[in-house]
């Protein structure tokens, strides 16, 4: 040990220092990221008549981000993530019915309840194959769906909870009819949570999640308590999904049973895969593409939309497994390699 930590020769020390500079900056914000976050601002001015649709994109982005945390980073596959989204939405709905419509309180409680459910259900996912995890997450979501469906006295059953009264944000900004406040609110929540998620995935904790996803067997031999990390990230992802559901309920002032439905979970998985997993931005880009496509295609005919959705899934699996971002980065990598090999070939 001593020799490992012992001082190295001065010149090699500077060599090491130089070579680390790039790594130290690896968590910095990149120019493309700044550019990306100009999009919601630009959209605000460019599409003033579409705030409801834009809010939906922001909410779905947040929801996809929550799945990316548990699936893209920690590798826990889920076909029932709508459970947490639904818990968040119903939390806001039920609070609103009792006159407790403060948005931020709603967010906190939604995150809390979703996190509690996430914490307890995470223990069901520690062992078992991908398939078992799929089935268990699906089962938990279906159970919640049935509960919400049958306890219609509390949840409104299939009718949902219409007309939730939401108080102004911070007591200042009233949710208006055009969804302008709602959109700004949704984007701000998305950005804040994205910023936190970005810190998390670059932290040692986040790095260990990537490690678990790539090689869970090796991690205990690096003193990592794998199960504890998985429980933590699943709880976190659940809380994020809860917030997404809460924002949806607040901006729509309505909760429908479909927030808990199987299709909500399946669509979400598709959105994340479409955008690319394990990159934070994948879910966001997937959400933009998905919601915009759905908006235009289901205007033509809702059933056609489903057909194209299915076709997209099949093609994605067969030809573009990394999703939009994964395929793009693979393409860039190839170009870079070609660019590198060319001068070498010329010199030889």
């Amino acid at each position: 040990m001593t020799s490992l930590a012992s001082p190295v020769a001065a010149d090699s020390a500077t060599a090491i220092h130089d070579s680390l500079r790039r790594f130290r900056r690896s968590a910095d914000w990149k120019p493309l990221e700044y550019l990306f976050w100009c999009l919601p601002v630009a959209a605000y001015f460019l599409f003033p008549g579409n705030y409801l649709l834009l809010s939906q994109i922001a909410v779905t982005s947040l929801f996809a981000l929550s799945l990316d945390l548990i699936f893209g980073y920690a590798g826990i596959i889920s076909l029932g993530h709508a459970a947490f989204f639904g818990v968040g939405a119903y939390t806001v709905g039920l609070l609103g019915m009792r006159g407790m419509g403060d948005p931020l309180t709603g967010l906190v409680l939604a995150a809390l309840f979703a996190a509690i459910l996430g914490f307890f259900s995470s223990f069901l996912l520690l062992r078992g194959s991908d398939l078992a995890r799929l089935m268990v997450t699906l089962g938990v979501a279906l159970m919640l769906y049935e509960l919400a469906n049958k306890f219609s006295g509390i949840t409104g059953g299939v009718d949902g909870i219409p007309g939730i009264e939401i108080k102004p944000v911070l007591g200042l900004f009233e949710f208006d009819l055009y969804g302008r406040t709602g959109y700004i609110y949704a984007v701000v929540v998305l950005f804040v949570l994205f910023w936190i998620a970005r810190r998390i995935v670059h932290s040692p904790f986040g790095q260990s999640l990537r490690g678990i996803q790539m090689n869970a067997q090796r991690m205990p031999a690096l003193s990592v308590p794998v199960n504890r990390r998985l429980v933590a990230v699943y709880t976190l992802g659940a809380a994020y999904a809860g917030v997404a559901g809460a924002v949806l309920a607040q901006t729509n002032q309505f909760v429908s049973l479909s927030v808990l439905g199987f299709e909500n979970s399946a669509d979400l998985l598709l959105i994340l895969i479409l955008g690319g997993t394990g990159r934070l931005y994948g879910g966001l880009i997937g959400a933009i593409v998905f919601i915009v496509a759905k908006h235009f295609l289901s205007d033509l005919n809702p059933q056609y939309w489903q057909f194209w959705l299915g076709l997209a899934l099949v093609l994605l699996v067969m030809y573009a497994r990394g999703g939009i971002l994964g395929t793009a980065s693979k393409w860039l990598e190839k170009r870079r390699q070609r660019a590198q090999s060319r001068p070498v070939g010329g010199a030889a």
């Binding site: 596959i77 991908d130 598709l270 059933q303 056609y304 489903q306 076709l311 699996v317």
Partner: peptide, 28 residues
Amino acid sequence: RRLYEASDLDQVLFSLGLVFMAVAATHY
């Protein structure tokens, strides 16, 4: 056949896509 060696996830997504297409086509 092309997906026998693929991961569970790929198979799930692929077959889910087939379901969506079949449902939509039947509707039509």
